[in-house]
């Protein structure tokens, strides 16, 4: 009896202690959650509400007029299409450039890897606007490349400046460090022994990449794609400085609609549409991660 009574007391004490820990945990997360609600969740719903509530003489009324205008305007749709295609090309180029780079950094044993890593991370420390002007001076009309070609007696290049390739080059250059870092982190999950075991089984480099490495970094690739899409879709500086004036990417389009066309409700509508497309990628990413975790359980 004594034993039962004493064990019961201990159990109650343990529950109280774990409750205390739970409360501390809730208190610790309450501040960031409150900030999240105030600075992110509230503005999202506020923006959606502002686009759906049109001002009338008597106050406001529910209306989808700005969405109808956006999706029936050829210019707005061309801007959306340009943004989508630039994003897709950038994502493909980033994976094509950064995956070999990340593989080299992960598996190379030589000292050159350190230098390559330094070079790959360098763009992270260059502000976008500096990068944009550097690109203009290099690949713009009469830029550095043209000067060299001219000195060699060769014709000038067809400059990508003010074409969709301008922001593509800039955005890819700007996103190489983060993409490479995320892929290297993902490749950390592939152990040296797993690679060696595959080589031992007879896998040559391509088979190794296809059957062992890529399937194991699926999550990292999803993260990279999501981050790339989210950051490039909503990019402003590089598309504004390097991109074409018409059609234009969604970032400059929103800014111009707000400050030059003086139509803040339409600008918010463009932002909500941009957010909705990004949210689809975000949801896809979260669903994939959740599915993988579920499968592991």
């Amino acid at each position: 009896m004594t034993d039962l009574a004493s064990s019961g007391t201990r159990r109650t004490g343990g529950t109280a202690a774990s409750n205390g820990r739970g409360l501390t945990g809730l208190l610790l997360v309450s501040a960031p959650v409150a900030l999240l609600g105030w600075l992110i969740i509230y503005p999202i719903f506020n923006a959606i509400a502002r686009t759906l509530l049109a001002p009338t003489e008597t106050g406001t009324a529910f209306s989808t007029d700005t969405y109808v205008r956006f999706f029936s305007d050829g210019y707005a749709l061309a801007n959306l299409w340009l943004t989508l295609s630039v994003t897709a090309v950038c994502a493909a180029l980033l994976l094509a450039i950064c995956l070999p780079l990340a593989l080299y950094l992960r598996f190379a044993k030589s000292r050159v890897a350190g230098v390559v890593q330094g070079l790959a991370l360098f763009p992270m420390f260059v502000p976008s606007v500096i990068l944009a002007y550097a690109l203009i001076r290099t690949i713009g009309p009469n830029g550095g490349v043209d000067l060299v070609l001219n000195a060699l007696g060769l014709p000038k290049i067809n400059s990508p400046y003010l074409t969709p390739w301008g922001p593509i080059i800039g955005l890819v250059w700007d996103n190489i460090p983060l993409t490479t870092l995320m892929l290297v982190a993902g490749l950390g999950a592939v152990s040296d022994n797993a690679v060696e075991a595959a080589r031992d089984a007879g896998a040559r480099p391509l088979a190794l990449l296809r059957h062992i490495i890529l399937p194991q970094i699926g999550n990292a690739m999803l993260v990279v794609l999501s981050f790339t899409v989210l950051s490039i879709f909503s990019a402003f500086t590089l598309p504004y400085v390097l991109g074409p004036a018409s059609p234009e990417m969604m970032g400059p389009f929103m800014q111009r609609t707000f400050s030059q066309v003086m139509d803040p409700r339409m600008a918010v509508t463009q932002a909500v549409i941009t957010f909705a497309i990004c949210a689809v990628f975000g949801a896809f990413y979260v669903r994939s991660i959740a599915k993988n975790r579920e499968a592991r359980r």
């Binding site: 075991a197 595959a198 080589r199 031992d200 007879g202 896998a203 062992i212 399937p215 699926g218």
Partner: peptide
């Protein structure tokens, strides 16, 4: 001679199994 061409088979301390494959998939890979 590189490992993929050597007539050797290695068992690692960490097992080094490929977690994205089934048991049969691991054995059948080579």
């Amino acid at each position: 001679v590189p490992p993929e061409k050597r007539p050797t088979g290695m068992v690692f301390q960490s097992h080094a199994l490929w977690s994205h494959m089934s048991v049969a998939g691991n054995v059948a890979f080579g």
